[in-house]
Design a binder for these strands. Structure first.
Length: 417
RNA sequence: GCGGACAUAGCUCAAUUGGUUAGAGCACGAGACUGUGGAUCUCGGGGUUGCGGGUUCAAGUCCCGUUGUCCGCCCCA
């Protein structure tokens, strides 16, 4: 019976400690996104299927088999968004944000949906925080965005356990040549590659670098590297970024095997890896996509962005045993029901000061009320009885030390929580 | 989508080769304590053993299916 109402596989309720981490991550992300001059946008969760097919690419697994797609009442094919970038680009063009310089830098947050087999760090509904920077091809932009992400990791306390992997996948000039070169190499060593890689050769040859098969890995050691096959412009672009990175304190490494799954990436791509949270160890990833705006019918508008996965970041924070900031609160207990009006009056004062206040009178006996106050982990408990009402005072008890003293009602405003 | 492991009280786990009424700790509730929490003690509530079939005199235990979780592949945040 209970079974019929249970959550769908890969979907979850987020509350308690997890929600605390969720809010911490989102708050930190928001803070830096704003400090770096990004403007927020709230996007629809449901879009036309075609948006993602065109944006993400038909060769990707996301589009081929992981989208929640269905027909709406008007017979249109619609899809729960599997990522944010396509929608941001759509909104950017649809609202003519291209003419508003303040909207060249946009950030978003929200749930994404992919119909994958769930495992740790991989859900069907998960949350991403992302930024997109439109209208510039300078490596300084790439650097600024990566720096911002680095500052977020630093503030969250994940800085020393994460590594930023960087690579360049080239542009429309050098990438096709390189892919041909790689295919030639592949065909010369065909028998050494696994079946998955043979499939990758047809779909997206670059992905053979992601293979975990040992034989494939060894074979790939001799394969032509992306970084050695860039055109002059891409190479300069990449080198300039690496130069900036080297001069900063960012913990990064050049990973010639890093390729990204989405078709729209060009030139510099990166991924933030947190070791030790299982197979799904990338907590953020992104890169440059210089032609996506054109793909949707806009003018040439180079862009750079990334998204971070909230749930994976929560796993990382928990693993590092990062403490959540405490939220102090107080409780008001009364000896009998007669003091409830007074309790309400006091609560108005404390809540007016912005203090989280629990009135516990309905728990019955004072000993019971204090027990609840203890479990709620409140900093102070205000106790009101007959005598206190008569003298317009309260008893204020420090729940940590157990000390208790009398205080005039007017003095409550001086209470420091 | 493929392969593997697991599923017992709110939580963490027990339960001989299938064999009485499925136990313990923590948590929860009541009391010892009628204007004072955390400690201790006593008592108590709580389970169709994930769900559905099957084998058997007998199933938490064996078999099949199903759902969920976890791990690997795949993919990606």
């Amino acid at each position: 019976m209970k079974e019929n109402f249970s959550r769908l596989r890969g979907f979850q309720d987020i509350f308690g400690e997890d929600l605390g981490y969720f809010e911490l991550i989102e708050k930190t992300f928001r803070k830096y996104a704003k400090l770096y001059g990004f403007q927020e946008i709230k996007l629809p969760i449901l879009e036309r299927t075609e948006l993602f097919v065109r944006g993400i690419g038909t060769s990707t697994d996301i589009v081929r088999k992981e989208m929640f797609t269905f027909e709406d009442r008007g017979g249109r094919s619609v899809t729960l968004r599997p990522e944010g970038t396509a929608s941001v680009v759509r909104a950017f063009l649809e609202n003519n944000l291209i003419n508003l310089p303040q909207y060249s830098k946009i950030f978003y947050s929200g749930p994404m949906f992919r119909a994958e087999r769930p495992q740790a760090g991989r859900l069907r509904q998960f949350h991403q925080l992302g930024v997109e920077w439109f209208g510039g091809d300078e490596p300084l932009i790439d650097f600024e965005v990566i720096s911002m992400l680095n500052e977020i990791l630093l503030e969250l306390g994940l800085h020393d356990s994460t590594k930023i992997h960087i690579n360049s996948v080239g542009c429309e000039i050098c990438s096709p040549n390189y892919k041909e070169k790689l295919k030639t190499f592949f065909d010369e060593n065909k028998e050494k590659f696994c079946d998955d890689c043979k499939d990758r050769r047809e779909k997206n040859i670059l992905r053979i670098f992601d293979c975990k098969n040992e034989t494939c890995r060894v074979t790939l050691e001799k394969a032509p590297k992306t970084s050695e096959n860039l055109c002059d412009t891409c190479k300069h672009h990449f080198d300039t970024l690496i130069n900036l990175m080297t001069k900063s304190n960012i913990n990064f490494e050049i990973n010639p095997k890093l390729v990204r799954g989405l078709d729209y990436y060009t030139r510099n791509v990166f991924e933030v890896v947190f070791e030790g949270i299982g197979a799904q160890n990338a907590i953020a990833g992104g890169g440059r996509y210089n032609h996506l705006v054109e793909e949707f019918g806009g003018p040439y508008t180079p862009a750079f962005g990334f998204a971070m996965g909230v749930e994976r970041t929560i796993i990382a924070l928990k693993q590092k045993e990062i403490k959540l900031p405490e939220e102090n609160s107080i409780a008001i207990c009364t000896i009998s029901e007669n003091e409830i009006p007074k309790a309400l009056e006091i609560a108005k004062i404390t809540r007016g000061k912005g203090i989280i206040t629990h009135i516990l009178s309905y728990y019955g006996k004072i000993s019971k009320q204090l027990k609840i106050a203890d479990k709620l982990n409140v900093k102070y408990t205000i106790i009101i009885g007959e005598d206190e009402v008569k003298n317009n005072t309260v008893q204020i008890k420090n729940m940590l030390s157990g000390e208790q003293k009398s205080m005039k009602v007017e003095e409550i405003t001086t209470l420091e929580i």
